[in-house]
Structures are given as structure tokens and as C-alpha cells.
Amino acid sequence: MFVTPAYAQAAGAAPGGGINDILIQLMPILLLVVIFWFLIFRPQQKRLKAQQAMLASIKRGDTVVSTGGIIGKVTKAVDGEDLEIEIATGIKVKLVRGMVADVRSKGEPVNDNKPA
């Protein structure tokens, strides 16, 4: 009495449509990959290349800042990986080249943050 009769529907398209359906389903994933590439991976690669170029260009007389915050002047390159820096008059320490955070030019003053 309350049930309506069910009518058969016309035959639809075969399941597992064409290549267009697959591409439409993969578009959001491909879009995310492109966004990640341009916003994360590409800038990181540029920073890495700039860091490597900076480390390769360190020479005697440059003022360097270590990742620990120690500021000193390069007195000599001990070998390919180590640097000898002078942090105070007569006080020299060895520093691994990879731990250099910044290279300052010879003429750039060091900001000691001393009160005026």
C-alpha cells in the first residue's frame, strides 16, 4: 500500500570509464605535487646551493659566524674540511667548515650589541 513500484533504469555506461576519468581523479594529487615542488623543494634546493657556494668561497681573512654564534676571523684552512679561526687576540680554535652559518666580508663591522 505504501510501497511504490520500482522501475528499471536504462543501461548506463560501462564501469571503468576511459583515460579521462582516471586523469580527472588524479588531478588533485598532481596539483599538490606541483604546489609542493614550487613552494618547498625548489626554494630548499636554491638555499642549499647558495650555502655550498658560500662555504666553498671561505678564504683567509674572512670573518665568519658559526652556528653556535662564535664570531672569528679565519687564519688558515687546516685541511679541506676544517678552518682555524681566531676568536680573540691569540686564541685560535678549529671549526668544521659545515658549521659556518654566515661569512662576513673583511670590511663589515661586527655587531657586538653593546649598550651605547
Rank of each mutant, 00 (worst) to 15 (best):
P43G: 06
P28E: 08
L39C: 10
V78H: 03
G107C: 05
G80M: 10
F36E: 03
L31D: 03
D112H: 10
K46R: 14
E86P: 03
A53K: 11
V34K: 01
T67K: 11
F36N: 03
A56D: 11
L48M: 12
M27T: 13
S57D: 15
I24R: 06
T67F: 04
I58Y: 02
R60V: 15
I70R: 00
R60K: 14
Q52A: 14
G18W: 04
P43Q: 11
N20D: 10
M99L: 14
M99R: 07
G72W: 00
N111K: 09
S66R: 02
I87M: 02
I35K: 01
F38K: 06
V100C: 05
L83I: 05
M54I: 10
V74K: 01
K114N: 12
K94F: 05
N113W: 07
L83G: 00
G90L: 09
L95Q: 01
G80V: 10
R42M: 10
K76V: 10
I22F: 13
V34N: 05
D21Y: 07
N111Y: 07
R47I: 06
V65G: 00
V110K: 06
G68L: 02
V103N: 02
G61W: 10
G18C: 06
P109I: 08
V93H: 02
E81F: 13
D21S: 12
L83V: 08
N111T: 09
S66P: 04
M54N: 08
G90E: 04
D102R: 12
L83M: 04
I22R: 11
K114L: 13
L55D: 05
A101Y: 07
V64A: 05
P43V: 10
D112C: 05
K59F: 06
D79S: 10
V93C: 04
G18K: 04
K49N: 11
L55R: 06
G80Q: 01
I91W: 00
A53D: 13
G107L: 10
N113Y: 09
I85K: 02
G98F: 07
G61Y: 07
K76P: 02
R47N: 13
A77I: 15
K92Y: 06
A53C: 07
E84T: 07
L95M: 15
F36G: 09
G68I: 01
I71V: 15
D112Y: 12
G72E: 00
L26G: 02
R47P: 05
T89E: 15
A88R: 12
V74Q: 00
D62Y: 04
V33S: 06
I22A: 13
A53E: 14
Q51A: 14
D62I: 09
P28C: 09
E86R: 00
G90W: 06
D62G: 08
V78K: 01
L83P: 00
R47H: 12
K106F: 09
N20S: 12
R97P: 03
I35M: 08
V64Q: 01
V93S: 01
K73G: 05
I71R: 03
A101Q: 14
A77F: 01
V74I: 13
P109Y: 03
E81L: 14
Q52Y: 02
G107V: 10
A101L: 13
K76D: 11
G61Q: 10
I19V: 13
